[in-house]
């Protein structure tokens, strides 16, 4: 479903990704772990088309389409979702308006009918409730004044509303308390565990993987995948650290 071949990318002319190859078939969840600064977020940004992240070599296809040729909003319409490591605040724009316009813009470009105000509120209320978030939080400006954990939970509400085909979740577990972690884990399974969907789960810790069992675990180091394995690899990393496990 997502095929990355020999991907090289630079940020501000500095090579960060140095030949990543990775394939996530439909129905699978792959975890990406790796030390700080190894390029995990960069990979997420490159795949979602952030300006300033330049691909210098290699390819990425999504359901057979050349992902790298699409604009960020076209990637979203194609079904890609990026859960941000640091969700962005947008003062003056309510989450409800933001998400409704975003979703309808995606639907328009897919040739699907737009949701009416009423239909959208119903969907938003449903998804917020499933993640244990009060829908009133979504009347506030996007992420403004949210705690770190609330922002991460809100990202998952956004994901529930968008219902993407493929999600790249960048440290969605960081900053979550124990209950929130459980809710977010359950949310990821509910929204994304399906035969026609896929997930790239960027994380530092085993604890999220206790809820969302990955099919594969990859270790990223200095812009390269240095090891891949099954779920047991995450346990090994947790026990022994990157220096040992990736040696």
């Amino acid at each position: 479903m997502l095929d990355i071949r020999n991907l090289h990318a630079t940020v501000a002319d500095k090579p960060i990704l140095k030949g990543i190859s990775l394939s996530v078939p439909a129905g699978e969840v792959h975890a990406i772990m790796g030390p700080n600064g190894s390029g995990k977020s960069t990979l997420g940004y490159v795949l979602s088309g952030r300006p300033g992240y330049e691909v210098t070599e290699g390819s990425a296809t999504f359901d057979g389409k050349d992902l790298l040729a699409l604009e960020p909003h076209e990637r979203a319409a194609a079904g890609l979702f990026l859960g941000f490591q640091y969700p962005v605040e947008i003062p003056g724009v309510s989450s409800l308006q933001f998400l409704r316009e975003s979703l309808n813009s995606q639907r328009r470009s897919r040739g699907e009918p737009e949701l009416s105000g009423g239909e959208f509120i119903k969907l938003a209320r449903e998804q917020a409730a499933l993640l244990g978030m009060d829908v009133d939080m979504l009347k506030r400006p996007v992420n403004v004044g949210f705690s770190g954990g609330e922002k991460k939970r809100a990202e998952m509400v956004q994901m529930g509303i968008m219902n993407p085909k493929f999600a790249i979740l960048d440290e969605t577990d960081s900053g979550l308390d124990i209950d929130a972690l459980r809710a977010v884990g359950a949310g990821i399974n509910r929204i994304m565990r399906a035969p026609d969907k896929g997930v790239l789960l960027i994380t530092h810790y085993q604890r999220l993987l206790d809820y969302v069992t990955p099919d594969k675990v990859h270790v990223l180091n200095a812009g390269r995948i240095v090891r891949s394995g099954g779920p047991e690899l995450a346990h090994e990393l947790e026990r022994e650290g990157y220096a040992e496990a990736a040696a």
């Binding site: 979203a76 990026l82 933001f98 813009s105």
Partner: peptide, 17 residues
């Protein structure tokens, strides 16, 4: 970028911000 990653084209994202 956040707005575009959610599906808004650049002009709509600008207008919203």
């Amino acid at each position: 970028f956040y707005a575009q990653s959610r599906g808004l084209d650049p002009a709509s994202a600008r207008a919203l911000l």
